[in-house]
Simulated assay, not measured.
Amino acid sequence: MDNPFPYRLYLVISEENCAGRPLVEVAESAVRGGVDVVQLREKNRSTKEFLQKANALKEVLDSHQVPLIINDNLEVAKQVGAYGMHVGNSDLPPSEIRKKWNTPHCLGYSIEYLEQLNSPEAEVSDYFGVSPVFATPTKTDTVTEWGLEGIAKIRSLTSKPLVAIGSMKKDNTFEVIKAGADCIAVVSAICQAQDPQRAAAELRNEIERAI
């Protein structure tokens, strides 16, 4: 079976993270710099607003052949024809998504404590978000701050792709990949950057150097 998640640099984006710039513009710039998968996360928007943003973003991503993942909104994911969904511990469980949506190419699941790896939800997921690797102001409900040792521990327990998220930046990307992550997910390091394309390219170079 083909790997449903072969990606290396994962952008998590929302309107409020883009420093007043258009979301689609920031995303396209990041893709030009080396981002190869994008997750749209709009927790504070109505489904209608979320869907509008998802449609506009998907149109641009499709032109670059970059997949769109939707954060925890099954209705939006289905209507926009997303590549997949990502959910956390308190979101709609992956097993429920599988029952209600028979065409996702991939499902991501955030791992916040080790016991989750043995759960039915982990079993039906295609990749894991190791969340957070380092504490971050964008996530206030942290259960575990994994660090490099946590990544290595999870890597020893699963063969599924690991996406590291949480204060990821150019200075720590190399060591996080070396510790066992397959992919780096970023929010601020790209969305808040003066030049998102350059920021993405610098992150991508660190990933390529480490693999």
Rank of each mutant, 00 (worst) to 15 (best):
V37Q: 09
A181L: 09
Y127A: 10
H105W: 07
T158C: 04
V66T: 14
Y113A: 13
Q192F: 05
P161D: 08
A27Q: 04
L51G: 08
E121M: 05
R45M: 12
R21N: 09
T142Y: 06
E175P: 07
L162W: 01
L11E: 00
R155K: 11
Q116H: 08
V187E: 03
N17Q: 13
A122N: 09
N44V: 04
F50C: 00
E112F: 01
A179M: 09
V186T: 09
E16N: 14
H64R: 15
V133K: 02
K78Y: 00
I13W: 01
L51F: 11
D62P: 04
T47F: 03
A82R: 01
T138F: 03
A19M: 11
D171Q: 14
H105S: 15
L57M: 12
T144K: 11
V130H: 01
A181F: 04
M1V: 12
D171K: 10
T103A: 14
I69E: 12
I207Y: 04
D62M: 08
P104L: 00
Q52F: 01
K48R: 15
K139H: 15
L92E: 05
Q116F: 06
A77C: 04
D2E: 15
Q65N: 15
D62N: 14
G129D: 07
S131G: 06
N17W: 11
E115I: 06
E42N: 02
A193F: 02
D2W: 05
R98L: 14
P161V: 04
S156C: 04
N172D: 10
G129E: 03
K99R: 14
P94Q: 02
R45V: 05
S46A: 07
M1G: 14
G166A: 06
S29M: 06
R198F: 07
A135H: 07
D171F: 05
G34W: 03
V186D: 01
N55R: 15
R204Y: 13
S110F: 02
M85V: 13
Q39E: 13
K53Q: 14
R41Y: 09
P6W: 07
E145L: 05
V143F: 01
K48C: 06
A77K: 02
V31M: 04
K48T: 14
S63T: 11
I69M: 13
L107T: 03
L117G: 01
R21D: 09
Q39I: 07
K58A: 06
Q116M: 08
E202A: 05
S29E: 12
S167L: 12
F174A: 03
R98W: 05
E145G: 00
V60A: 10
E123T: 15
E49Q: 14
Y113C: 12
A122D: 10
L162C: 05
P120A: 10
W101M: 01
G150I: 07
F134P: 12
V143R: 11
P94T: 09
E175A: 10
R32N: 08
K53M: 08
K139I: 05
N44A: 12
D36G: 11
P67S: 06
A185K: 01
P4D: 06
T142D: 13
K99W: 02
V31D: 02
A82V: 05
V163A: 02
P94V: 08
S63Q: 12
R41P: 04
Q192R: 14
N17H: 11
I207N: 02
S46V: 11
L162R: 06
K43R: 14
K169N: 15
I154A: 04
L68E: 06
I190K: 02
F50R: 12
A179R: 07
S119N: 10
S119Y: 12
A82I: 08
L114T: 13
